[in-house]
């Protein structure tokens, strides 16, 4: 394809967008609203995921052995733990280690714990980290079959987070499909208008010997331009609001800062920019292709 031909396609494509002002705006608007929803839900899902990951790394499950502290018993429990799937790591903490840890945490009051070394009330324990927090329920059910142990873990919190995350995924998927469909239909109508306006021109082009693709390209370009504007717009809006909202949450809830860590906008946009462009331009191209195929028997 020659450069000046590409220039011709581009100028015709842009003219088409401009000429169908209102319809183009409607198409851009639908694609943009579709992508805003994609963006918002992606921001939430990515951060919930991130929080879950942090939870996985920092919390895990603590198993206390309440039976008699003998080497044999500890070995027995450890073997049992090793048999359970989805466990990434098991760290044994002896009562002595546990006491030292407590002392450290108590800081200047650590002296209050003096003298407990000989009659240590703390049970031996295992810190378990999982490969994925979604397997927590399964692992806990397995742990409950081991005698003489007590388990401590964040049951409700993880359940809520996992549920929330799944719900967001389902809602965003449904919305994307619906809005994507509307976007394609509106695109089709917009491009159909251009096809109609240029009906005579197309007819003449066919008689002169224009190839099918020579006739199609300007419409495809029009679809791409609309899709591109439709994806840049929501990306800009989300960029500014993401920074604004995360800062606002940090500011208002200083105590949350230790638990809640948000992804940086850069991390979010590394995924969101290509995804939005692909969806936006994809809708544009699909919509225009449908209308050309339907209304141009080239």
């Amino acid at each position: 394809m020659k450069i000046r031909t590409v220039k011709y396609f581009a100028s015709q494509g842009f003219k088409g967008v401009w000429r169908n002002g209102l319809m183009s705006l409607a198409s851009i608007g639908t694609i943009a609203s579709c992508l805003i929803i994609v963006g918002i839900f992606y921001c939430i899902a990515a951060n919930v995921d991130y929080i879950l990951k942090t939870l996985e790394e920092t919390t895990g499950i603590t198993v206390f052995y309440m039976g008699e502290n003998t080497e044999e018993n500890i070995k027995y429990v450890e073997d049992k733990l090793n048999d359970i799937e989805y466990i990434k790591e098991i760290i044994y903490i002896s009562p002595q280690e546990a006491l030292e840890k407590e002392k450290k945490e108590w800081g200047e009051y650590a002296s209050l714990l003096d003298g407990l070394e000989n009659d240590n009330p703390l049970p031996p324990s295992f810190e378990i980290t999982l490969d994925d927090i979604r397997h927590q329920e399964y692992v806990v059910s397995k742990l409950n079959t081991i005698p003489d142990i007590e388990i401590r873990y964040l049951e409700e919190e993880t359940k809520i987070l996992i549920g929330f995350n799944n719900m967001i995924r389902i809602i965003s998927l449904v919305l994307i499909v619906i809005l994507g469909f509307i976007g394609i239909m509106l695109m089709e109508n917009t491009i159909r208008l251009t096809v109609f306006i240029r009906k005579n021109e197309i007819n003449i082009m066919k008689y002169i010997g224009a190839t099918d693709w020579f006739i199609r390209w300007p419409f495809v370009v029009e679809g791409i331009v609309i899709g591109f504007i439709g994806s840049i717009l929501p990306l800009t809006i989300i960029w500014f609001s993401y920074n604004f909202v995360t800062e606002l949450i940090y500011e208002k809830n200083t105590f949350l800062q230790n638990i809640l860590t948000f992804r940086t906008p850069e991390e979010i946009f590394k995924v969101l920019v290509p995804v939005s462009l692909v969806i936006g331009i994809g809708i544009g191209i699909i919509g225009s292709s449908i209308s050309i195929r339907k209304y141009l028997k080239v």
Binding site: E201, N203, I204, Y207, I208, G209, T211, D212, F214
Partner: peptide, 21 residues
């Protein structure tokens, strides 16, 4: 179908209604 445009380049056409843009 792909070859039709190249055939048409060998044929000039004029119509009763001129068909100018």
């Amino acid at each position: 179908k792909k070859e039709i445009p190249y055939l048409r380049r060998k044929l000039g056409v004029v119509f009763q209604d001129f068909r100018l843009l």
